[in-house]
């Protein structure tokens, strides 16, 4: 059993709970930053003893992007949007946390039904990946502010990445870079979009975007 890997995964799970339980946007962004950092460390933890240069560079790149650039961008958007709190979530925070626990349980159950864990590096990887994905999806569905939905998207992507780590040992670097590039563009675009929306409409409530339809 790989201790460091397990610890990282548990921290990832906890960050999911905190994401579900907090109403402060800044805290949520910080939590995604922590998640990003943990994601960055994951390949190193999986490699264990000898760390190859390629892996190290990839890890550093991910960490910088996910724990540095994205949060910075999003923080700027939060500050400029003038909204500090998710005001009226569609699902309350207590209930969200409980659903998070339920999702973790479901993830473990799902994992026991699927054949992935046998070849994974730790028994935890697959369930944690499922839970992180579920958290991301849930955030996108249950929150109103566009920022939270972006965070949900990031979390979902993190989950997919963990899942990829679990089942494939050593993702081709090119694919990984491509994904990162995609995400970078996505976050960039969304950050600009949110900024524009908030300047135009004085709020970033995605539920009210329905008023835009013809």
């Amino acid at each position: 059993m790989n201790h460091i890997l397990d610890t990282l995964l548990v921290i990832l799970l906890l960050s999911c709970f905190l994401l579900l339980g907090t109403s402060r946007l800044a805290a949520a962004v910080r939590m995604t930053a922590v998640q990003g950092f943990m994601i960055g460390l994951l390949p190193l933890a999986i490699e264990g003893g000898e760390i190859r240069l390629r892996v190290a560079i990839l890890a550093a790149l991910i960490a910088v992007l996910k724990a540095g650039v994205f949060p910075w961008l999003l923080m700027r958007t939060v500050r400029s949007a003038g909204t500090t709190h998710e005001e009226r979530p569609l699902v309350g925070y207590g209930l969200s946390t409980l659903l998070g626990v339920a999702a973790v349980g479901a993830a473990f159950w799902l994992d026991s039904r699927l054949p992935f864990s046998a070849e994974a590096h730790s028994k935890l990887v697959v369930p944690v990946a499922f839970s992180v994905m579920a958290t991301g999806l849930f955030l996108m569905v249950a929150r109103r502010t566009a920022i939270c939905q972006v965070l949900g998207y990031l979390t979902l992507e993190n989950g997919i990445y963990i899942f990829g780590l679990a089942i494939v040992s050593g993702i081709p670097m090119l694919v990984e870079l491509g994904v990162l590039m995609d995400m970078f563009v996505a976050v960039f675009v969304m950050g600009i979009a949110i900024f524009r929306i908030s300047r135009e409409f004085d709020h970033i409530d995605a539920a009210q975007l329905t008023s835009l339809k013809g």
Binding site: V10, L14, Y93, T97, L98, G100, V101, V104, F108, L124
Partner: peptide
């Protein structure tokens, strides 16, 4: 307060899940 206590319950439940597994 209820949220924090629910959180404690969630942590304990997670710990239990990890140990059961």
């Amino acid at each position: 307060v209820p949220q924090l206590l629910l959180g404690a319950g969630a942590l304990a439940g997670l710990g239990l899940l990890l140990i059961v597994r």
